[in-house]
Amino acid sequence: MTGVWALLGVVAVVAAVGVLLRVRDGRVRTGKEQRVDLPREVRELLDPGTPVTLVQISTTFCAPCRHTRVLLADLAERTEGLRHVDLDVTNLPEVAAGLGVLRTPTTLALDARGTELLRVGGVPKRDALLAALRDYLPRPNG
Score class of each variant (00 low, 15 high):
residue 28 V to H: 00
residue 117 L to V: 04
residue 31 G to L: 08
residue 109 A to M: 08
residue 49 G to T: 08
residue 55 V to Q: 03
residue 104 T to S: 00
residue 72 L to C: 00
residue 35 R to P: 08
residue 141 N to R: 13
residue 95 V to Y: 04
residue 107 T to R: 04
residue 138 P to T: 02
residue 110 L to D: 04
residue 16 A to E: 10
residue 83 R to E: 07
residue 53 T to F: 01
residue 99 L to S: 01
residue 88 D to G: 07
residue 4 V to A: 15
residue 120 V to M: 12
residue 82 L to I: 02
residue 140 P to A: 11
residue 112 A to D: 05
residue 53 T to S: 00
residue 35 R to Q: 13
residue 99 L to V: 08
residue 119 R to W: 13
residue 137 L to K: 01
residue 43 R to Q: 11
residue 5 W to N: 13
residue 114 G to K: 05
residue 100 G to R: 14
residue 109 A to W: 03
residue 141 N to S: 11
residue 38 L to Y: 02
residue 4 V to F: 15
residue 22 R to T: 12
residue 98 G to V: 01
residue 29 R to T: 12
residue 66 R to S: 14
residue 84 H to Q: 14
residue 22 R to F: 10
residue 101 V to P: 11
residue 36 V to W: 13
residue 109 A to S: 04
residue 59 T to F: 05
residue 100 G to P: 06
residue 28 V to F: 03
residue 100 G to L: 14
residue 75 L to I: 05
residue 121 G to T: 10
residue 76 A to F: 00
residue 40 R to N: 11
residue 19 V to R: 10
residue 96 A to S: 12
residue 67 H to W: 13
residue 138 P to A: 06
residue 139 R to L: 13
residue 1 M to P: 08
residue 134 R to V: 11
residue 33 E to G: 09
residue 82 L to Y: 00
residue 47 D to Y: 05
residue 18 G to E: 04
residue 61 F to N: 07
residue 64 P to D: 05
residue 130 L to A: 11
residue 132 A to R: 08
residue 77 E to Q: 14
residue 32 K to H: 10
residue 28 V to N: 07
residue 44 E to Q: 14
residue 86 D to M: 01
residue 78 R to S: 07
residue 17 V to G: 05
residue 6 A to Q: 10
residue 15 A to I: 12
residue 4 V to K: 09
residue 23 V to H: 14
residue 120 V to N: 01
residue 3 G to W: 13
residue 54 L to P: 02
residue 104 T to P: 06
residue 62 C to E: 00
residue 46 L to D: 01
residue 125 K to F: 12
residue 2 T to W: 15
residue 105 P to V: 00
residue 94 E to K: 05
residue 61 F to Y: 09
residue 90 T to R: 11
residue 9 G to Y: 06
residue 11 V to P: 02
residue 60 T to M: 13
residue 72 L to R: 07
residue 4 V to N: 10
residue 74 D to W: 08
residue 51 P to A: 04
residue 74 D to M: 01
residue 100 G to D: 13
residue 41 E to W: 07
residue 126 R to M: 03
residue 137 L to N: 02
residue 7 L to H: 05
residue 83 R to K: 14
residue 54 L to N: 08
residue 70 V to P: 02
residue 65 C to A: 02
residue 34 Q to W: 07
residue 41 E to N: 09
residue 10 V to P: 10
residue 88 D to E: 03
residue 73 A to D: 11
